[in-house]
Amino acid sequence: MVRRLEQGADQEEIRKAGATAAVVDASFSVAEGETFVVMGLSGSGKSTLIRMINGLLTPSAGHVYVDDEEITGMPPKALRDVRQQRMSMVFQHFALLPHRTVLDNAGYGLRIKGMDNAEIDKHAREALAMVGLEGWEQRYPQQLSGGMRQRVGLARALAAQTDVLLMDEAFSALDPLIKREMQDQLLSLNARLGKTIIFITHDLNEAMRLGDRIAVMRAGRIVQIGTSEQILNEPADDYVARFVQDVDRSRVLTAASICEECTALKADVSPDEALSMMHRHDTDRLFVSDGGRRLLGMLSAADCEQALRDGHSVVREAVVAVDDPVDGSTPMNALFARMSRHPVPLPVIDDEQRLVGVITPGKVFEALSREPHAESVGAPAAVKEASVSDV
């Protein structure tokens, strides 16, 4: 069947021959510390994919590597060692042992490794504290809510101290409010721990909230890999475009992705030069940056005129600090209240406090009203880059 697929047979032909091609030509790599989300509808092949990654299923063709070591075809004992030492799994339906306490469940993976009881107790308690279950150690799974049981499953994976977490529809059985709390907790935990996560979901909003990158699967094939913004703005085909058409864009798009170019003054220009630049750009204020594009503040025409009257040769002394610049990672929906308080364009900065652009009401309306359009299948999504021109 593999050869028939390589020769161009489609899924329907394979089905008629009595076989199912669950995953076809899926190739990707996941960076250390990355949350890589695989999403698709039921039957798209995503759960089969994660079972090949952890060695529960052996691919008919192709290879799986963990830290450059191939696990495809490993002897059973070596494969068990990989699962115990490098990869932990969080399941959709918790997979807790009902006759064991919360503490015992959290430390179960360590017990299988043969760790001594004192170390098991220490690491299990630490993991339970991480997920907010301190004080629940002696309860049993049936005494917990669904969300709490999933926290135990997550604690078990964290206690194992593996670098890789595999999460198969881990939150899909939870109520919406509990699901969001678990998503928040996962984001918070991984900001501290830096685990490499492969997260399987059929929920596009969940994928876009959690994933550094997302792989969209259809009929066993990965049709697009990209960031949330790339998939939302540049879907690879009509299938992906239909998937994202009802997504709340304001929750996905960030300030950095919608900001527009701006001209920034250097702090050592004269007041006359600054006024001339404002006139050319038909504005009464500009942002000011240093030689490394780090934001220093804002300068208005009135400030420039006062600097002239005060005899200043450069505008540095007249710059007014910006109290609340916008971090580029800020979701667009968090900007609305801020824009209502600050009618001027909002400066957008990166992690190094460098000015990358400005947010205007026009750019927000444009981003909200934009219709996603499909590119040719397999085409790379365009990445928008804002720029700043220093004067």
Score class of each variant (00 low, 15 high):
Asn117Phe: 15
Gln142Val: 13
Gly147Asp: 10
Val131Met: 04
Ala160Phe: 07
Leu165Pro: 01
Asp121Leu: 13
Gln161Thr: 00
Gln183His: 13
Gln142Ile: 08
Asn190Phe: 13
Val131Leu: 06
Val164Gly: 03
Asp175Ser: 15
Ile120Thr: 00
Ile200Val: 14
Pro176Asn: 13
Tyr108Thr: 02
Thr201Gln: 10
Glu134Met: 13
Met130Lys: 07
Arg125Met: 11
Leu174Lys: 10
Leu204Gly: 02
Ile222Lys: 00
Arg213Lys: 12
Ile222Leu: 09
Leu166Phe: 09
Gln138Tyr: 15
Ser145Tyr: 12
Thr162Phe: 09
Met148Thr: 06
Ala219Cys: 14
Asn105His: 08
Asn105Ser: 10
Gln161Gly: 06
Lys179Gly: 10
Phe199Cys: 07
Arg125Ala: 15
Gly153Asn: 02
Gly194Arg: 11
Val223Leu: 11
Glu169Asn: 09
Leu204Trp: 06
Trp136Pro: 00
Glu181Met: 14
Lys122Cys: 11
Lys122Phe: 15
Gly109Trp: 00
Leu177Lys: 14
Leu204Glu: 06
Gly211Thr: 03
Glu134Cys: 08
Thr162Pro: 01
Glu119Ile: 05
Met217Asn: 04
Ala159Ile: 01
Met115Asn: 03
Glu126Lys: 04
Arg192Leu: 10
Val216Gly: 01
Asn205Pro: 10
Leu154Pro: 01
Glu206Trp: 09
Ser188Val: 08
Ile222His: 03
Met115Gln: 06
Leu204Val: 11
Gly109Tyr: 01
Gly135His: 11
Gly194Ile: 13
Ala159Phe: 04
Ile120Phe: 06
Phe199Asn: 00
Ser172His: 12
Gly132Tyr: 09
Lys195Ala: 14
Gly135Met: 13
Asp116Ile: 03
Ala124Trp: 01
Gln138Asp: 15
Phe171Glu: 02
Leu193Arg: 03
Met167Arg: 02
Ala170Ile: 04
Ile200His: 02
Val223Thr: 04
